[in-house]
Every structure is written in C-alpha cells, then in structure tokens.
C-alpha cells in the first residue's frame, strides 16, 4: 500500500560562501528561497514545518507563487534534497517527471538514447528490451529512431523524450507541471498517456500554476507560501 507522511519537514540550507578570488558581491550561489540569518551565516529557509499525509488514491496538487517551495518539496519527496528537520515516511516506488530531456545525447541515436535513459532510470537490460518497441511506437519516429538525436526536429525530440520518460509503472508519481509534447495530434495522445499514468499511480503529487489542471487531476490541494503550508484542502 502506497503512502506518504511528512511530519514537520523543513529544509534549511546554508548559502555557501564559495572560496573564490572573485569580488565579494559575486560570490553567492544563485539559489532561490527566503534568505535568513543564522548567527553570522546566511541561510535559505526553503521549507518550514511542512506536514501532510497521503494514502493510495490521493492526488495532491501543489500550488503557490514562484519561490513558494513547490519544486523544492517535490525534490525532497524524490530524495534529491535531504530535509534538515522533521520526518518523511514513504511506502512505494517513487518516479518523477521533472526534466524529461535529462540525459539525452545529441550524437547518440534515438535507440541508444532510450537505452541510456533506461539505464539512468534504473531499468534492467530485459526491461529496456521490453520497453524499446513500445517507446518507438509511441513516439512515431519510425526509421528516424536509428538516426542521431541531433538530426531530429524539436517536435520529434520532444516526442521521444516524452515517450521514454512516461513509460512507467508508477506507484508514486511526482510531477513538476503537466507535460505534453509535439503537434496537435501527438498532444492529444500525450494527454491520454498522462491521464493513464495518473490513473495507474497510487499517489500523485503535481506542482502547477494551472488551477484548471489541478481541479481536473487532483483530489487535494496544498498551498505553499514562503516554504510554509498556507492551506491544505
């Protein structure tokens, strides 16, 4: 049974003054969040006391203005950021659709890119073999699949990236905005794929600025502001 429980989770990270020979004003990393002082150090309070509980069937929409902590919260759930306080308990395999183009290599063929994408996603050789034709079929690339990725049009590249990224059996699915790709007919197909994914996933956490989408897909809405939970409905 899939579940997510966050109890008073906070994420505070120090703004590292990188050791550098450049002028003091240019030293800081360009990171978002709320900058606060902790003694002599400057810190970013990205999340502050976030608590919620999700069980199988829940679809949580994360809303809030830019810099509210939506993407940060998704990355904490995915395990990219380690929280600095509170506890997280997750039961179920977590998949994320953040940057679907990650890892694609311009010089490699579409087929090779699917293999690489599969390896990065932790698929076994058998799983890659099994999913290969499905991805090629879905992307509608035909013979182009054996040409270098750099030879693809933007739409073709997006279709392949979408097909490879959404060939999942998610238990818990994290999404930073709803993704779509390609021309009008492919977008319709992509929408159906996303709906299927949402249907299959035990739990969905979707960050978006699109209220209509949140209303359509989600059963719960968590509003974040300055890293804090403003409301959960």
């Amino acid at each position: 049974m899939t579940s997510i429980t966050l109890n008073n989770v906070s994420l505070v990270y120090r703004l590292f003054e990188k050791l550098t020979l450049s002028a003091p004003g240019r030293r800081r990393s360009a990171l978002g969040g709320n900058i606060a002082k902790s003694g002599t150090k400057q810190v970013v309070q990205a999340l502050d006391g976030v608590s919620f509980e999700l069980k199988a069937g829940d679809r949580l929409g994360l809303v809030g203005p830019n810099g509210a902590g939506k993407t940060t919260l998704l990355k904490v759930l995915y395990g990219i950021y380690q929280p600095s306080g509170g506890t997280i308990s997750i039961t179920g395999k977590v998949d994320a659709l953040f940057n679907i183009h990650i890892g694609f290599r311009p010089e490699a063929t579409g087929r090779r890119n699917i293999v690489l994408r599969g390896l990065i996603s932790g698929w076994t050789a058998a799983e890659i073999e099994e999913k290969m034709e499905e991805i090629i079929d879905f992307s509608e690339l035909g013979d182009f699949i054996d040409l270098p990725f750099k030879a693809y049009s933007q739409g073709m590249a997006a279709r392949l990236a979408f097909a490879a990224a959404t060939t999942l059996e998610p238990e818990i699915l994290l999404m930073d905005e709803w993704i779509g790709a390609g021309d009008a007919s492919f977008q319709e197909k992509a929408k159906r794929r996303m709906d299927e994914l949402a249907e299959k996933a035990g739990i969905i956490v979707l960050a978006s600025h699109d209220d209509a989408l949140i209303q359509r897909v989600c059963t719960k809405k968590l509003t974040l502001r300055a890293g804090r939970v403003e409301s959960l409905a």
Binding site: E107, L116, L119
Partner: peptide
C-alpha cells in the same frame, strides 16, 4: 550496482 550506467556513459563520452 549501477555499473552499467557509468560504463555506458563513459563510452558515450569517449565516442562523442
């Protein structure tokens, strides 16, 4: 355990 990932990526790097 993910040796196939880094071996594949390293080969791609050299090839590229």
């Amino acid at each position: 355990r993910l040796h196939r990932v880094w071996i594949a990526l390293a080969h791609e790097d050299i090839g590229d």
